[in-house]
Write a protein that binds this DNA or RNA. Sequence first.
RNA 1: CGGGAUGUAGCGCAGCUUGGUUAGCGCGCCACGUUCGGGACGUGGAGGCCCCGGGUUCAAAUCCCGGCAUCCCGACCA
Length: 463
Amino acid sequence: MAPPVLTPQSVDFPRWYQEVVAKAGMAENGLVRGTMIIRPWGFGIWERIQAALDARIKATGHDNVYFPMLIPRSFLEREAEHVEGFSPELAVVTHAGGEELAEPLIVRPTSETVIGDAMARWVQGHRDLPLLLNQWANVVRWELRPRLFLRTTEFLWQEGHTAHAAWDEAEEETLRILVEVYDEVIRDVLAVPALLGRKTEAEKFPGAEATYTLEALMRDGKALQMGTSHNLGQNFSKAFDIAFSDESGERQLAWTTSWGVSTRVVGGLVMAHGDDRGLRLPPRVAPEQVVVLAVKDEAIEAAARLADDLRRAGVRVRLDDRTSQSFGRRAVNWELKGVPVRLEVGPRDIASGRAALVRRDVEGKRNVALDTVAATVPALLDEIQDALLADALRRREEATADVADPDDVDGPGLFRLPWKAIGEAAERGLAERGYTVRCLLDADGAVPSRRETDLVAVVAKAY
RNA sequence: CGGGAUGUAGCGCAGCUUGGUUAGCGCGCCACGUUCGGGACGUGGAGGCCCCGGGUUCAAAUCCCGGCAUCCCGACCA
């Protein structure tokens, strides 16, 4: 037996993560500290996520736009909490064109300010509302401790920015994005079950009135924020004068929202599903859903035919006919990359009209008929998609404990306890021990409304 | 910004203490052959500003001074 491909998760989870990201060909460090080179396999996964998000963002009525990456420093300073929140992590351009700039430029850490400025011009009357915008962009935040995908200096994301005529419309928008866009993609595409809730005052976005979040459990018992949606109230419309004339001709300030999902979710996908052999990709995000592996030269032709059948059945398929490499090496490699299904075709299979089918999500191989298997694969991919979600949900349930008191919070996993039992003082106490309130839920485990008082806090260590 | 460590081939490392032939090993890469149903093996080969700058010395990867970069542990975060 060859030595293990990866450091086992149980031995050193962070090391496992770094190794799997590198060996699966997902990403590596860039030349500048904290930056990331996303390799084809990693970018392929991101493109699938991006497509799923983009489709739902458009389906809910938003239009894509693009704003510049450079922002005058004075702009950021308009919203007090916002500057305070971001100023430590800004990258600033002080020189350009061979000269020192009169006003330094900020490389955007997020775009509320520039988009707010444009909105102030674009919104004049109530008929201009709601204004529903989204942009795909890169942003820069000078993070102190970067980790590939999870926290990089520069990252890719989408940021939605909307303006509304009334508070409840903004609130509705904030929650619609959370539920109809983010949760759907994270659950149905990434097969990651997330808890949807509200952030505490301590954890909310700088400048927001309320921040909603999707929190997912990773395999080491830590939580990861997969996305956020903010109701900005009138904070930014005050700062940027986003105002409109209502039906009665009164001048009113608009209510705005912003929301984002970043390349961080790729890291979440890795840590939610990956095992000691590598990635386990849900079929809907897998750049290749099936690999047909020709065991020997004599089998290449039959393998190619099978790959064609699969392609016609609508499956993203890759033919591996690199017979100059050993079978074992290739098998290990596809497992590292997490391709959901592998079909092995060798001379012995051809002789008996079959192929060996290997699912990445479960142990074992089984024989299937070479000429009919293609037709059954789409249903099998759905089954794998569901199985990964079920597995992640089961893990989360097993790792969730109900406790009565902050002092009972100890060890990995999620802890549910009454928010009243914590409060803002104990929240700081938990933070000293490395725990944060990930989100607040209502008594039924749903997103709490603004007025609810009987809240449940979910506490965990987080990335 | 504090504490710790490291910069030598694409990657992982040895050599440095005690300066001295042509700087070495494993993986990877290239060629050929034998292999090939779970990380194959043999033979041959390519690949180095030993992080940068200065100093000591007949002689520096090795000793000294300065710089830069990266990694790990804490405080900030999508």
